[in-house]
Nucleic acid binder design. Structure first.
Length: 727
DNA sequence: AGCACGCCGACT
DNA sequence: GTCGGCGTGCTC
């Protein structure tokens, strides 16, 4: 539908505030805007960036109308993006302005990059030549453009040398063109050496990318089967067609490893997009994506809201990863929204995982997605030999958590000069502290979960809400001194046990609360990769993406952990996590071993991992959910909850928010991904129920359901996402 | 979501 | 007598 846009006096504008409809703004006579134009508008006392909408605005008093201040000098968002905003708003029950806000996350990028002043050679030659001048002229020949201080530094001279040359007309002032954020990737840079399986799978994906148009392919291949190289074939095809490519990665996996693999294949790095990108870089990436200067973006979930002009392919790597879910403000699953974006814009979507989620498997089984499987590990990367250690038959020594079998294997591995990884998904020293005299258990005053002892810090922490207190000497209940006992293991405690068995081995603990933050963590990981540790004890952050080249033993301290928390996804999650962790071994070419300590070696999760028969596990899981009245998908009932005031409604929302994600099982409320929306009069709150809800919260919700809507104003809780109908 | 306005408690 | 807490309402 092409038509000349008539002069509009008033246009609808999506402002980043939670209103149901766009606001109306007057368009000054000398201004032209189209739907998608990014504009600066006055809103109350401030000026903010907003998007001209194609949806009708609500009625407004003409006296309130204010004019658009300016149109930003950047390309308007394409219609596809506007439809994407509207779709997400509707699906997630979020005000459209709040969704639009996600497209405006790089405010400074809305204006063109400030021009950078540089200098360039002229035809003139200097009157006298000196050593310093010679160096400057030599360096100036290299590179694509120099700033005055840049050239001086590169030539190792002071800026006055350059000023002298400039005074003679040897250099002149110019404005440097904006520098591309990354080099152009070359699809033919290096032809990969693929196995027969990879070639077959790669051909399917390449065809999808070449043909274009919407379609979803689930690329399912065990760790080390070379999934990445396979979807790179599709990426190459899209680049050849001159289209843009978005590769989504779980946040933690934005590691050097991926970027380097990409560079090996394409000769240049992809543009990165994630939360700790420096602001400058962020702006440049945003702008160059909008101007179709960037071919490939590798990013975390927020990259989904970059203003691509000509997207030709979306890849979601590790599609099962829970970090694709955003749980604040706008609640969405980036994996699902990637499929939606592909659908709206007519792009192929590749979902890749070694352990696909149940819902993606189900969608593939139903024929909604195409499925391509890579059965074997590639080349020299042999699978580790996997086994369970039955803790009933091989119990740890009193007060310990390592079975003799595991200790023996650690010893052997260490003697061979190889590395061991001990995995326990629990931070701190002990998950429960109690008083041996009176039985007092340390509980969080705010949310009633056990306080976890962190011995290195001397604190008791609530892992649920972040509450912290100093670890006391005496029992706060009966006053007894020295009778507090730690129950159960955390990584710190395992480290203690490791030191007692292997005092001469170099051991290290890695968890997200490591003192020194992310930077320290990165350093430690590098040190481990260089072989500077013998025994690594870590939480789930060691499961992702790092290559420990000398690792030949993975011991899972408590493989049962997480199976009994009532989460309907418990088995699936445990399976995914343990597969990933044991996959850390066996990348060396050497013989390697993965051992799962468990009290239930016959549990389907253990059997699936040990036997490698994942197909049976998936079938069983799907059937299990159906039996429990939790089909993998399905529309869920709404719940009416009453609240008299905004404060009360907010209180409910906060309470739900704090305890919802990843907690114990929700049966009344249905499967894991159900988003709840609380709507109280004009106030509206949402949250995503990920793992399920704790029993006390279920009771709370049930009570509210019974209470029914309040005549004074109500909070409505809705749970009605239906993944089957999300297209 | 921000931000202003407004009404009650501890301070220069 | 004011500073500042957050409860309430509004933004085209």
């Amino acid at each position: 539908m092409k038509q000349d846009s008539p002069r509009q006096a008033v246009v609808p504008v999506l402002v980043p505030v939670p209103t149901e409809t766009p606001y109306s703004y007057a368009v000054p006579d000398d201004m032209t805007v189209v739907p998608g134009s990014i504009v600066r508008v006055p809103l109350g006392p401030r000026e903010i960036a907003a998007i001209v909408s194609d949806q009708p605005a609500g009625a407004v008093d003409a006296r309130k109308l204010r004019p658009i201040s300016a149109v930003f000098d950047c390309p308007p968002l394409p219609g596809e993006s506007l439809r994407f905003i509207a779709w997400i708003a509707q699906y997630t029950m979020t005000p459209p302005g709040m969704v639009a806000r996600m497209f405006l996350r790089a405010p400074a990028a809305l204006d063109p990059e400030p021009p950078v002043n540089g200098i360039a050679r002229t035809e003139c030659l200097p009157d006298r030549m000196t050593a310093a001048r010679g160096r400057v002229l030599e360096i100036a020949e290299t590179g694509s453009g120099w700033t005055r201080p840049g050239l001086a530094r590169a030539a190792g001279v002071s800026a006055s040398v350059i000023d002298g040359l400039k005074a003679q007309g040897v250099f002149e002032d110019i404005v440097l063109p904006p520098q591309p954020v990354v080099a152009e990737p070359d699809p033919a840079f290096k032809q990969p050496d693929l196995s027969a399986d990879q070639i077959g799978a790669g051909r399917v994906l390449r065809d999808m990318a070449e043909k274009g148009g919407f379609g979803v392919c689930l690329l399912d291949g065990v760790t080390g089967s070379g999934k990445t190289e396979v979807y790179f074939e599709a990426v190459a095809a899209a680049i050849r067609q001159g289209r843009q490519v978005l590769i989504l990665l779980p946040e933690i996996a934005l590691t050097h490893a991926f970027l380097e693999r990409f560079q090996d294949r394409f000769g240049a790095k992809p543009a990165e997009w994630h939360s700790d990108l420096p602001p400058r870089m962020r702006e440049r990436v945003w702008r160059q994506v909008a101007e179709n200067q960037v071919r490939v973006v590798a990013g975390a979930r927020s990259a989904l809201f970059l203003p691509f002009r000509d997207l030709g392919l979306i890849v979601v790597d590790e599609e099962h990863d829970p970090s694709y879910k955003q749980e604040d403000r706008v609640f969405y699953s980036a994996r699902d929204m990637a499929v939606v974006r592909g659908h709206l814009g007519g792009h192929p979507v590749v979902l890749a995982s070694a352990t696909p989620s149940i819902e993606s498997r189900y969608n593939a089984q139903q024929g909604r997605y195409r499925r391509v499987a890579l059965p074997a590990r590639f080349a020299e990367a042999a699978l580790p030999e996997l086994g369970t250690v039955d803790l009933r038959r091989n119990p740890p020594a009193r007060g310990g958590f390592l079975s003799p079998v595991l200790i023996d294997e650690i010893a052997k591995t260490w003697r061979r000069g190889e590395q061991s990884l001990l995995f326990l998904n629990r931070r701190g020293y002990a998950p429960l502290t109690l008083c041996r005299v009176c039985g007092h258990r340390f509980q969080c005053p705010d949310c009633s979960s056990w306080l976890v002892e962190h011995r290195f810090r001397g604190q008791l922490l609530c892992h649920q809400c972040g509450y912290a207190e100093q670890r006391p000497e005496a029992c706060p209940s009966c006053g007894a001194l020295d009778h507090l006992v730690a129950c159960g293991p955390g990584v710190e405690r395992i480290a203690e046990e490791v030191v007692s068995h292997f005092p001469d081995a170099r051991s290290i603990v890695l968890s997200s609360d490591l003192a020194g933050g992310v930077r320290r963590l990165r350093l430690e990981l590098e040190a481990i990769e260089k072989g500077e540790a013998d025994i690594v004890i870590g939480t789930q952050l060691v499961a992702k993406g790092h290559n420990f080249p000398n690792l030949t033993l993975v011991g899972v301290i408590d493989a049962d952990l997480g199976l009994a928390n009532g989460d309907p996804r418990a088995a699936e999650r445990t399976f995914q996590l343990l597969s990933q962790v044991t996959g850390r071994a066996g990348r060396t070419g050497k013989k390697s071993l993965g051992l799962l300590q468990t009290y239930q070696p016959d549990h389907p999760v253990m059997r699936a991992i040990v036997s490698g028969d994942w197909e049976t596990f998936y079938e069983r899981e799907t059937a299990e959910r159906e039996r429990a009245g939790l089909p993998p998908f399905g529309r869920l009932a709404g719940i009416i909850v009453s609240a008299a005031t905004r404060a009360e409604a907010e209180g409910h929302a906060r309470a739900l928010r704090r305890v919802a994600p990843g907690d114990a099982g929700i049966v009344v409320l249905g499967p894991a991904e159900a988003p709840l929306s609380l709507v109280a009069g004009r106030y509206r709150f949402r949250l995503m129920v990920q793992g399920g809800l704790r029993a006390d919260l279920q009771a709370f919700l049930r009570a509210m359901v019974k209470a029914g809507p309040s005549p004074r104003g109500s909070v409505r809780v809705q749970i009605d996402i239906d993944p089957q109908s999300f297209l």
